[in-house]
Write a protein that binds this DNA or RNA. Structure first.
Length: 239
DNA sequence: AAACCTTGCAACCGCAGGCGC
DNA sequence: AGCGCCTGCGGTTGCAAGGTT
């Protein structure tokens, strides 16, 4: 059996320099010409498509490279509610941001939060897919789109309602809804004892180390940062 | 200390639509 | 009309650095 691995060739500083030079030189975006000039003048082999993508997603001088601000995140989330996965449409409303940056933000946020949420849960409690259709459920949406600074132990205390799980199962059964399958599914060899242990260890860790963060009034205390959720998050007491 | 895991994001791919010939 | 080329779009996957075990 022969496996073909996709090799990614990162752009070097020199390549970037030459590409920028040529792109600005030609004024317009004649990628075919730019690509062939790269080869002729600098012996750099990049297809027209690679050149255009590099420019669009990285070199374009009007792009910001800083982290998304809270304001930008709020805007993205509400635009996503309106337009769905139309990343380039959303990018039109966010000056200095490319559709790739926005798409990456959503995918990595969802992936990160799925991991945190699934940590130490039984198979039946886990959320396994990052179907964007799932975001239409308010509870699941608040979990999957929570900000970076929401700690793992917050996620562990969340209990999804039966309605949310019912919705999740309904979506999961209809394969047409799946936009992408989480990579993590492939490495997710579930082991109930390990999961229990993980959970116990973590509870112990919380008790020993960050007790002061979690006063008796857990229900009040556990809140996502105000800026992330579209709507207020309701926590459900776990037993 | 080294192997393994997680994370953020850059880059690749297939597809579809526009356009010229 | 229809073919081929080009580009933009959105889903997916690889890379590298930092973190954890």
């Amino acid at each position: 059996m022969v496996y073909l691995l996709k090799k990614i060739k990162l752009w070097t500083k020199e390549e970037d320099l030459m590409l920028r030079d040529l792109t600005e030189g030609f004024g317009g975006r004649n990628w075919k010409k730019i690509s062939s000039s790269l080869k002729i003048f600098y012996n750099i082999t990049r297809t027209p498509k690679q050149c255009s993508e590099r420019w669009k997603n990285y070199l374009n001088g009007s792009l910001k490279r800083s982290e998304f601000s809270h304001m930008e995140i709020e805007k993205m989330l509400s635009l996503h509610m309106e337009y769905g996965n139309k990343w380039s449409k959303i990018a039109n409303f966010l000056p200095g941001r490319s559709s790739n940056q926005i798409k990456n933000y959503f995918h990595s946020t969802i992936r990160r939060n799925l991991r945190k949420f699934n940590f130490g849960r039984s198979a039946s409690e886990k959320l396994n897919y990052s179907s964007f259709k799932l975001l239409e459920n308010k509870e699941i949406r608040n979990i999957l789109l929570a900000g970076k600074d929401v700690k793992k132990h917050f996620f562990m205390k969340i209990k999804l309602s039966d309605e949310a799980y019912e919705y999740y199962r309904k979506i999961s059964q209809n394969s047409d809804y799946f936009i992408c399958k989480s990579r993590d599914d492939y490495i997710d060899n579930y082991d109930i004892n390990l999961a229990k242990k993980e959970r116990e260890n973590y509870e112990l860790y919380i008790q020993n180390n960050i007790k002061e963060e979690l006063n008796e009034n857990l229900y009040e205390e556990l809140k996502f940062p105000e800026f992330i959720p579209q709507t207020e998050f309701e926590f459900f007491k776990s037993n």
